[in-house]
Amino acid sequence: MKKFSIGYRTLKTAIGASIAIAIAQYFDLASYASAGILTILCVQPTKKKSLHAAYTRFIASMVGMLYAFVSFELFTYHPLTLAGMLVLFIPTIVSLKVADGFVSSAVIIMHIYAAEGFSLSLVYNELALMAIGYGTGIAINMYMPDIQKELNYYRLKIEELYSKIFLEIAVYLREGDTLWGGQELIEAIKVLNSAKSLAFKDVENHFTRRENDYYVYFDMREQQLEIIERVLPKVTALPVIVQEASIVADFLQDLGEHVHSGNTAVHFREKLERVKRDFSQLPLPINHAEFLAQAALYQFIEEMDRYLEIKQSFKGLKAKKERPQ
Rank of each mutant, 00 (worst) to 15 (best):
P145E: 10
A53R: 01
H52G: 15
T76W: 13
V43D: 07
D100M: 04
L82Q: 13
M62K: 04
V94A: 05
L82H: 11
E150A: 06
Y77T: 03
I21S: 01
E150M: 06
A33Y: 12
D100V: 01
V87F: 04
S18T: 12
G117Q: 10
M62A: 09
Y113A: 03
T39G: 13
A106C: 12
T81V: 13
G137W: 05
R57E: 10
I37S: 07
Q148E: 06
L96Y: 09
T81Y: 08
K97V: 14
T39K: 14
A139K: 13
F89G: 01
Y143D: 11
A106H: 08
A83F: 01
M85H: 11
Y124L: 15
I21V: 08
F75P: 08
G135C: 11
S121M: 14
C42L: 12
S95K: 09
C42Q: 11
T46W: 07
S104P: 13
I19N: 00
K149R: 14
A33G: 11
Q148H: 09
A114L: 09
V107M: 05
I147K: 08
S121H: 15
T46I: 08
A24N: 00
H78K: 10
L38D: 06
G84K: 08
L41M: 14
N141M: 08
A115Q: 14
D100F: 02
G117H: 10
S18M: 10
I147Q: 09
A24I: 00
I138N: 06
A30E: 13
N152Q: 10
P91G: 05
D146R: 11
F102K: 02
S34R: 06
